[in-house]
Write a protein that binds this DNA or RNA. Sequence first.
DNA 1: GGCCCACATGGCACTCAGTGCACAGCCTGG
DNA 2: CCAGGCTGTGCACTGAGTGCCATGTGGGCC
Lengths: 239, 239
Amino acid sequence: MSSTSAAPGRGEKPPMRDALVAAAFRLFLERGYEQTTVDDIVALAGVGRRSFFRYFPSKEDVVFPDHERCLADMEAFLAASDDSHEPVRRVCDAARLVLGLYAENPTFSVQRYRLTKRVPGLRAYELSVVWRYERALAEYLRARFAGRREGTLRADVIAAAVVAAHNNALRSWLRSDGKGDAGAEVDRALGYVLSTYAEAPGPARAAAETDGDVVVVVSRRDAPLWRIVQELESLLGRG
Amino acid sequence: MSSTSAAPGRGEKPPMRDALVAAAFRLFLERGYEQTTVDDIVALAGVGRRSFFRYFPSKEDVVFPDHERCLADMEAFLAASDDSHEPVRRVCDAARLVLGLYAENPTFSVQRYRLTKRVPGLRAYELSVVWRYERALAEYLRARFAGRREGTLRADVIAAAVVAAHNNALRSWLRSDGKGDAGAEVDRALGYVLSTYAEAPGPARAAAETDGDVVVVVSRRDAPLWRIVQELESLLGRG
DNA sequence: GGCCCACATGGCACTCAGTGCACAGCCTGG
DNA sequence: CCAGGCTGTGCACTGAGTGCCATGTGGGCC
C-alpha cells in the first residue's frame, strides 16, 4: 500500500473511486473490456480487489460511474415541477439533463460510446440505464395525464419518443467525436417531438416535417389563439 | 431444424430443449430465478450440465426461448415489404407478430411476465431483446425514409413509439392474467401511434385524443382527399 | 495517555455462470 | 467394416460477485 501508483493527482486525494475509473478505462481502451479482469484493474489502481466491489456493484458499473447521480437529479427535477409546466416540455428539459452529463466531459463520453458500441454486455447495461430514465419520464407524464383518456398510453409513447429523439441526437454527436454542438442537435431532435406532442405554446421550436402537401385547420370560434398556433407549428414545422 | 414440436405431444419426444425450459420454469416458479442454479435445472431435467449451455447461451436465455425465432420472423416480414406498404402501418403489423408470440401461450407468458417483473437481471435481458426488435423496426423505417429531411430521427422516434405502445398494451394484458383480448388492446394502442404518424389511409382506426378544443386544417387546393381525411382522422381521432 | 468505536480497506474462501476440450455414443453413407 | 458428422457428457478452468473476518486509522471520551 501507499504505493501512490497511477495517481497523477497534484497533491489531492483522488478518492479511490476515481482512481478505479481511471485505471479501468485505461485498460479497457488498451486491451478491451472483456480482456480486462477486475484483478487487472485493482492491480493497476493499487487497491484491493474487494474495494472495487465496494464502489461498483458490478464490473459494468465502472463504465457508467455517474448515471446513478444523474438519475437522481432527473427525478428531483421532475418532482420539483408544478402544473404550470407544460408536461411534454418538462420531460424534454429533463432529458437535457442527461445530455449535460455527456457534454460536460466529451472525450470520456466518446470513449465510452465506442466501448459500449462494441461490447454487447455494456450495450445491455446501458439499455437498463436508459430504461430507468424513460420510466422516470413516463411516470411523471402518467401523473400529469392522470384521468385523461388513454393517459398512460400517451405518457408511455411520449416518454419513449423523447428518449429516442434524445438518443438519436446524442449518438450523432458522439459519432462526430464530440465535435459538433450537442445542445443544438438535441434541441432540434426534441423540437421534433415537441412539435408533435406539446400542448402549450413555448419558444418557437417547431420542427415537424412538411413532406405532405396538406395541412388541415378546423377551429372552434372560441379556441385560444395559442392552440391554433401550436397546431400550425406542429403541422407545418419550420420547413 | 425440424423442430416440429410446439405441442406437448403425448408420447412425443420433447427434444431436451423443451424439457430444459419446463424444468427451469418449474424451479423458477417454485423457488425463484436467482435461487435456482443451472445445476438444479439440469438435475431436474436429467441431462448433463454442459448440454444446457449447448441449447442456451446463458441462463437468462431459457426464459425467452423463442424470441430469437420471432426476431428472425420480424426481419423476414420487413424484408418482404415493398413500397406499396405504408411504412408506419407496416411496422405496426410487424409489432403484432410479437404479440402473437405472447398470445399463443398466455399462461406461459403471464408466468414469465411475473418473473421478469421481479428479477432485475431478467428485466435487463428483456430490454436487450426489445431493443433488437426496435432496431429492426427503426432500420426498416430509416430505409423507407431515406433522403427525407430528418428521416432517421423520424424513423427512430416512430419505432420507439410503436414499441412503447405495443408494450403498453401487452403489459396491460399480461397484468390481467391474459384474460382480456390482447389483439384488441394492441390494436387500440397501435392505432394511437398510427393516428399520429401514418401517412396513408387505411382501415379507419384513428384513435387520437381530442382533449384539445381546436383542430387546424389548411389545405392546398390540389391536395389528395386521402391526405385531408388522414389529417382529420389524426387530429380528431374517433373521440 | 489509554481506550473504544466507527469506518474504510484488504485478504480469503466460496458459489456459480460460462467456456474449452476431449471423449463416448450414434447414425449415415461408402 | 470403417469414416465422419452430430449430440450429449464429464472435467477442469476462468472470472464475477459475496460473506466473513482481520486489519489499520482516526477521532472522540474518560
